[in-house]
C-alpha cells in the first residue's frame, strides 16, 4: 500500500511504522530526534540527496525581485521541523494505538480551527495558528497584530465559548501581540 506523506509528498514505504513514516536514513538523525524530545509527528526527509533537492512542498518560491517577505516560520522547510522550528499542532494523534482511533478526527478539527481562526480573527494573525492538545483541553496560541483592547477581549470570549460548544471540550486562547506585522519579517526572498 502506497500513500503520500502529507508534509513532504514522498511516497511512503511503510504506512504503519511508529512515529516516522520513513525508515531513518542515518543513525545520527535518529539520535538527534531522541535527544530533542518526543516528537510524534511524521519526520519529513527524502531518501537520497536527489529526492531531497526535488522536494517542493512546504518550501517558499523565490520571487523575481527577491522582495517577498517571509516570517521565520516560512523560511524553514518542513524537514527542519523539530530542528530549527517546531510543530504547529501538538497532539498524541500519531502514537501507536491513538492513530487508529482519532488521528483523522484531530486533523479534521485542526483544519476547522485554523479556518475558524483566520476567518473570525480576520487579518489579525501575524504567524501560524498553533494548536496544542493537553488532556481534554485545546489551547490555541498565536501571534496577532495589536488592535483595540476591547476587540481582542471580545474575540477571545467569543472564540472560547463557541469552539468549546463545537468541539465539546474546554478551549483556551493564549495570544501574544506584536505592534506591526512587519516586525515578523525574517528574510526577503
Amino acid at each position: 500500500m502506497a500513500a503520500y506523506c502529507r508534509s513532504c509528498s514522498v511516497i511512503m514505504q511503510k504506512v504503519n511504522c511508529l512515529g516516522a513514516c520513513h525508515p531513518f536514513k542515518s543513525q545520527s538523525l535518529l539520535l538527534h530526534y531522541i535527544r530533542r524530545g518526543f516528537g510524534t509527528s511524521t519526520i519529513c526527509r527524502a531518501l537520497n540527496p536527489v529526492q531531497n533537492k526535488n522536494l517542493r512542498a512546504g518550501k517558499q518560491k523565490v520571487s523575481i525581485n527577491h522582495d517577498k517577505p517571509l516570517t521565520y516560520e516560512q523560511t524553514q522547510p518542513p524537514n527542519m521541523i523539530g530542528v530549527s522550528k517546531s510543530w504547529n499542532s501538538w497532539n498524541s494523534g500519531s502514537l501507536n494505538g491513538e492513530r487508529e482511533k482519532n488521528a483523522a478526527q484531530i486533523v479534521f478539527e485542526d483544519i476547522f480551527i485554523r479556518k475558524f481562526m483566520y476567518g473570525t480573527w480576520h487579518n489579525l494573525f501575524a504567524n501560524e495558528v498553533i494548536i496544542k492538545r493537553r488532556y481534554n483541553q485545546i489551547i490555541i496560541a498565536g501571534l496577532i497584530e495589536q488592535r483595540n483592547h476591547n476587540t481582542i477581549y471580545f474575540l477571545i470570549g467569543y472564540t472560547e465559548e463557541l469552539l468549546s460548544f463545537l468541539l465539546k471540550c474546554p478551549v483556551k486562547i493564549e495570544i501574544q501581540t506584536v505592534a506591526d506585522k512587519k516586525d515578523m519579517i525574517f528574510r526577503y526572498i
Binding site: 495589536q146 483592547h149 476591547n150 476587540t151 481582542i152 477581549y153 471580545f154 474575540l155 477571545i156 470570549g157 467569543y158 472564540t159 472560547e160 465559548e161 463557541l162 460548544f165 493564549e174 495570544i175 501574544q176 501581540t177
Partner: peptide, 27 residues
C-alpha cells in the same frame, strides 16, 4: 500573559470583564 493586553487600571479591568463576557454572550 501579554504586556499589551494586561489591563492596567480600573477602567481597563472593567472593560476586560465586560468585553470578554459580552463575547461569550455573543457566542
Amino acid at each position: 500573559d501579554d504586556p499589551y493586553l494586561i489591563p492596567r487600571n480600573e477602567r481597563e479591568k472593567k472593560m476586560f470583564a465586560i468585553s470578554k463576557s459580552s463575547g461569550r454572550e455573543a457566542a
